[in-house]
């Protein structure tokens, strides 16, 4: 469905629903504004609640490519925006040797788009026919300096390369940034974005999400699994399980043929949902009494 036909956030909801993504009204409105105002959307929340998934589904809905930039500590312009193709440049210089070009012309040639390697951010703004979805994943992992690079892209949809000049987006990408909030992002960046916080879902919502992903699951098992996960989140665990872990857990129960959560099933599958020995120990202690 083209964007022009999109009038209400609910319309978006129907599609997301059919693509196994459950979003609440707030989330839908944020996505709606992202599309309509063409402002980047910053999604924050704990790991495993579907932040990255949102970008995937959005790109499916729009039927455009998803360009993804995974952030990490030490990510720099060369890996994120562009890099010159040095080997090609060296060859280019050699080939120019016999020519009568002035050195200024030579330089211009060597630093033309032909010799440019496009990295995700530059790719995102140089798409020829359609606006892509750009996902900048786990932005909080990158250095603060990198945030500053992003500012130009986020507000003006352009990137400046010293040798080439400013490249402006022909089709503005739809940008989704995600963060786990391991550090506070700068105000300058936040001000350029829409904001939405995705927390852990409630019982009902989580059940419907798991059901969407695992249509074959039995009602009884589904309810038990989700209830347990919800109670795990109340404990002070080192790594709180997200929705993706819930799905993994339910899936492993199904694969092993369990129809309800009992102590044996727990014993065998706890590794699917809890990822440290300390957590498993703690859950065993607290759950041992109830089973």
């Amino acid at each position: 469905m083209p964007i022009d036909e999109l009038k209400y956030p609910e319309q978006l909801g129907q599609f997301l629903d059919s693509h196994q993504y459950v979003a609440d009204a707030e989330m839908l409105t944020s996505l709606f504004l992202l599309l309509k105002l063409n402002k980047p959307l910053l999604l924050e929340g704990p790991p495993g609640v579907g932040k990255t998934e949102a970008a995937l589904v959005l790109s499916q809905w729009l039927d455009v490519p998803l360009i993804r930039l995974q952030c990490y500590e030490g990510l720099d312009v060369n890996a994120a925006v562009y890099e010159w193709n040095y080997q090609k440049q060296l060859l280019g210089i050699r080939m120019q040797e016999g020519s009568t070009m002035s050195s200024q012309e030579k330089e211009q040639k060597i630093f033309s788009e032909e010799y440019l390697l496009k990295r995700p951010l530059l790719q995102a703004i140089s798409q020829a026919d359609k606006s892509p979805v750009l996902l900048v994943d786990e932005l909080d992992r990158s250095d603060e300096e990198f945030e500053a690079f992003l500012l130009e892209l986020l507000s003006a949809f352009q990137i400046t390369i010293p040798e080439l000049g400013t490249i402006k987006a022909k089709h503005k990408p739809y940008i989704i940034l995600t963060s786990n909030r391991t550090r506070e992002l700068s105000d300058a960046l936040k001000r350029r974005c829409l904001y939405h916080w995705i927390g852990y879902p409630g019982l009902e919502k989580e059940m419907s999400i798991v059901k969407k992903r695992l249509p074959g699951i039995e009602e009884n098992l589904l309810k038990q699994v989700v209830e347990y996960v919800q109670s795990f989140r109340q404990l002070k665990l080192i790594k709180t399980p997200g929705i993706s872990e819930t799905i993994d857990w339910a899936e492993s129960m199904m694969a092993l043929g369990y129809r309800e959560v009992n102590s044996r099933a727990m014993e065998q599958t706890l590794g699917a949902i809890l990822k440290t020995t300390e957590d498993i120990e703690q859950v065993r202690l607290s759950v041992g009494e109830t089973i």
């Binding site: 707030e26 409105t29 944020s30 709606f32 504004l33 959307l41 936040k190 829409l194 904001y195």
Partner: peptide, 9 residues
């Protein structure tokens, strides 16, 4: 929701 998304960080 729309205003919230715009105004909050």
């Amino acid at each position: 929701h729309a205003l919230k998304s715009l105004f909050c960080t």
